[in-house]
């Protein structure tokens, strides 16, 4: 199955519901009036696109509405406008790379790391995982099981250890074993906990200091069911570890993932990967065009 199909399948629920709604709105509207815009606004908000971004999109549609004759055309333009909100950059990794994987609690960091490791191992990269979540009960075991399943080394200490020291060891191991990628798991933390965010900054500094030759390419994991709070999460984590992209997880549910549009538009942060299932292969590279197409197809 190609990427497009996979994505479509994963997003089918989203697509059906969104599309049905969109069609039902447009079907009965012969002329485009205020009500049409209001309903479109509601539709976007119900997809977690957020008030600001929604209002902006609607405003753009409104400006172009004079030229638009029928509702179908409106759909095409809305699609184009959404796509135009995404940054144009793609995934770029220069090896050796150190990847700090960060995010709030329960978004799927450890699972995503397992999938990432699998993906890049299959591309022939040598990978080392660092069990940097020393806080949550059994997080280390969870990563270890992933390590075994994928067949990559896991550097770990015991629960309660300093994550910076785990990372330090992983960096040394990475250098010695000439690993292409060192992927570091971190404990889930709310972006409002100042001391925990400081801990992340320290991890970032350790990477800079101990392995300056490597590229630090951090990723933030974001649960697609998250609402508007994701914006401030992204902002705070960006400040702490300057992450390059987002892994948008749990897109196989009914969550619309519209928050990705809001983040792209308001913060200019791209999505790199999406998680569309619990299997080891259920991590896909994100393609904004396909994403929007899949929603409106």
């Amino acid at each position: 199955m190609g990427f497009f199909d996979r994505l479509k399948q994963g997003l089918s629920k989203t697509r059906e519901s969104l599309n049905e709604k969109l069609d039902s709105i447009l079907k009965f509207t012969k002329t485009i009036d205020e009500e049409t815009f209001e309903e479109l606004e509601e539709l976007l908000i119900s997809a977690d696109v957020g008030v600001n971004t929604t209002l902006e999109l609607i405003e753009r549609l409104r400006n172009k509405s004079q030229k638009i004759k029928n509702p179908d055309e409106l759909k095409v333009i809305l699609k184009e406008e959404i796509i135009s909100l995404f940054p144009k950059e793609n995934i770029s990794l220069d090896f050796p790379t150190i990847m700090l994987v960060v995010g709030v609690n329960g978004v799927g960091k450890t699972t995503s790391i397992g999938k990432l490791a699998n993906k890049y191992k299959n591309q022939g990269k040598k990978i080392i995982l660092a069990a940097g979540d020393t806080f949550r009960a059994a997080a280390i075991d969870q990563l270890e099981i992933w390590g075994q399943n994928v067949g990559v080394d896991v550097i770990k200490h015991q629960e309660g250890a300093d994550p910076a020291s785990v990372l330090f060891d992983a960096l040394q191991a990475g250098k010695a074993r000439k690993a292409d990628m060192i992927i570091c798991d971190t404990a889930g933390r709310l972006h409002t906990k100042k001391n925990l965010m400081e801990e992340l900054k320290k991890l970032y500094r350790v990477c800079q200091k101990e392995y300056p030759e490597a590229n630090i390419t951090s990723l933030m994991v974001l649960d697609a069911t998250t609402g508007q709070n994701a914006l401030i999460q992204a902002k705070m984590f960006k400040e702490a570890v300057d992450f390059s992209g987002i892994i948008l997880t749990k897109l196989d549910g009914t969550a619309k993932g519209g928050i990705a549009i809001a983040i792209a538009s308001e913060l200019g942060i791209p999505v790199w990967y999406i998680g569309i299932g619990e299997g080891i292969n259920d991590l896909q590279e994100f393609n904004h065009q396909d994403f929007v197409e899949a929603i409106f197809a």
């Binding site: 977690d48 709030v104 329960g106 069911t225 998250t226 549910g253 009914t254 969550a255 619309k256």
Partner: peptide, 12 residues
């Protein structure tokens, strides 16, 4: 329920 959930909380 995660208090950070968005519009989908209702469907769930």
């Amino acid at each position: 329920v995660d208090s950070m959930t968005g519009q989908d909380a209702v469907n769930v």
